[in-house]
């Protein structure tokens, strides 16, 4: 009787997008933050993701379970095509209220030096993956999508999801990921500012990964 959230989203019902926002902002924001390493950018990506979802609402498949994979797929696309998405929604983004500077995540999230070192190591390892592989890893490993959902979200065959994950795993094993990286010894040393990445003059986002809008690839390489 009651149309499903999916049907209402497909129908472009603004109320449905309110529900979508309430239900999935956290998931979208987490993915965006993990892909960019920057809170301000992650918030912009949240806005752009929902604006894109609104724009693309009639492309939602009529049948299916949760809309979460669909939204996360849009999130990845926004991250990777940030410039294009931002240009498309330039006027709308200009109207995002100015909420002030986001405090440095490191002060709040990373409280212990070994956490910082570990986080840094994860970031470093993640940053060495190919962008394509990063997307699949972020969706399947961090956001918990199954292979099929990730495939649908990214518009690639399931087999491709699997092969990218395999490649990522190989690469991470070889690099000995999962332990603090030697590439950033400073971050783990006494005296280093708690939770800060070494100041190498790059933005945080560059240290973490390299969304397509960044000219350089390879982040922490």
């Amino acid at each position: 009787m009651e149309p499903s959230l999916r049907a209402r989203v497909r129908d472009g019902d603004p109320d449905a997008f309110g529900e979508l926002f309430d239900g999935y902002t956290r998931a979208v924001y987490s993915l965006a933050y993990r892909l960019t390493g920057n809170r301000t950018e992650a918030e912009e990506i949240v806005s752009l993701t929902f604006l894109e979802a609104w724009r693309l609402h009639d492309r939602v498949e009529p049948h299916g379970e949760s809309l979460r994979p669909w939204l996360l797929g849009i999130t990845v696309n926004v991250v990777r095509n940030f410039t294009r998405a931002a240009r498309r929604h330039q006027a709308a983004m200009a109207r995002v209220p100015d909420l002030g500077v986001v405090p440095d995540f490191a002060d709040e999230v990373v409280t212990r030096l070994d956490d910082a070192a570990r986080l840094d190591a994860v970031r470093a390892a993640f940053g060495r993956l190919r962008t394509d592989d990063q997307d699949v890893v972020a969706l399947c490993v961090w956001s918990g999508l199954d292979y099929e959902s990730a495939a649908a979200a990214l518009g690639i065959p399931v087999g491709t999801v699997r092969s990218r994950l395999s490649r990522a795993r190989r690469k991470l094993r070889e690099a000995g990921a999962g332990t603090p990286s030697r590439e950033h010894p400073a971050s783990g040393e006494p005296g280093a500012r708690s939770g800060q990445f070494p100041d190498d003059g790059r933005s945080r986002a560059d240290r973490w990964t390299q969304p397509a809008r960044r000219p350089a690839r390879g982040g922490t390489r």
């Binding site: 924001y29 987490s30 933050y33 993990r34 390493g37 809170r39 995540f105 709040e108 999230v109 990373v110 570990r118 986080l119 994860v122 970031r123 390892a125 993640f126 890893v137 399947c140 490993v141 961090w142 994950l165 990522a168 795993r169 991470l172 094993r173 990921a177 999962g178």
Partner: peptide, 12 residues
Amino acid sequence: ELTRLLPPPAVP
């Protein structure tokens, strides 16, 4: 294994 190799970074 991937989760062990790349634990999800905490999100503020």
